[in-house]
Amino acid sequence: MDAGTLKAGDKIPPTRFLMQQFNLSDNAVYRTIALLKAEGYVHGQQGKGVFVRDRRALISGTRRILIGITQPDETIHHRHSVRVEAPEWVAGILGEGECVNRAQTVQRGDVVLQASQSWVSLEVAAVVTEVDEPEACDPSWQAVYQQRSGQTVTVASRTVDARIATPQDRADLGLGEGRDEDRDENHALLVMRSVYVTGDTVIGVGEGVYAPGHPLALS
Rank of each mutant, 00 (worst) to 15 (best):
A3N: 07
K7H: 15
K7M: 15
A8M: 06
G9C: 07
P14L: 04
P14F: 04
L18K: 02
Q20C: 02
F22A: 07
V29M: 06
K37T: 07
K37S: 11
Y41N: 03
Q46Y: 12
K48I: 05
L66D: 02
L66E: 06
I67S: 07
I69S: 11
I69D: 09
D73C: 04
H78E: 06
H80T: 09
S81Y: 03
P87E: 04
E88R: 12
W89S: 09
G92H: 05
L94C: 07
G97C: 14
E98V: 11
E98Q: 14
C99Y: 06
C99A: 10
N101R: 12
N101W: 05
T105I: 13
V106I: 14
Q107K: 11
R108S: 12
D110A: 15
V112K: 02
L113F: 05
L113C: 05
A115L: 01
V120N: 03
S121H: 12
S121K: 05
A125C: 08
A125W: 12
A126V: 00
V127C: 13
T129M: 02
W141N: 02
Q142V: 06
Q142R: 04
Y145L: 04
Q146I: 06
Q147V: 01
S149L: 13
G150I: 00
V153K: 01
A156K: 10
R170E: 13
A171K: 03
E177L: 15
R179W: 14
D180N: 15
D180C: 11
D182M: 13
D182S: 14
E185Q: 13
N186C: 08
H187L: 10
A188P: 09
L190M: 10
V191S: 03
V195Q: 06
V195M: 04
T198P: 05
G199K: 03
D200T: 12
T201Y: 04
E207A: 02
L216A: 01
L216F: 11
A217M: 10
L218G: 01
S219I: 03
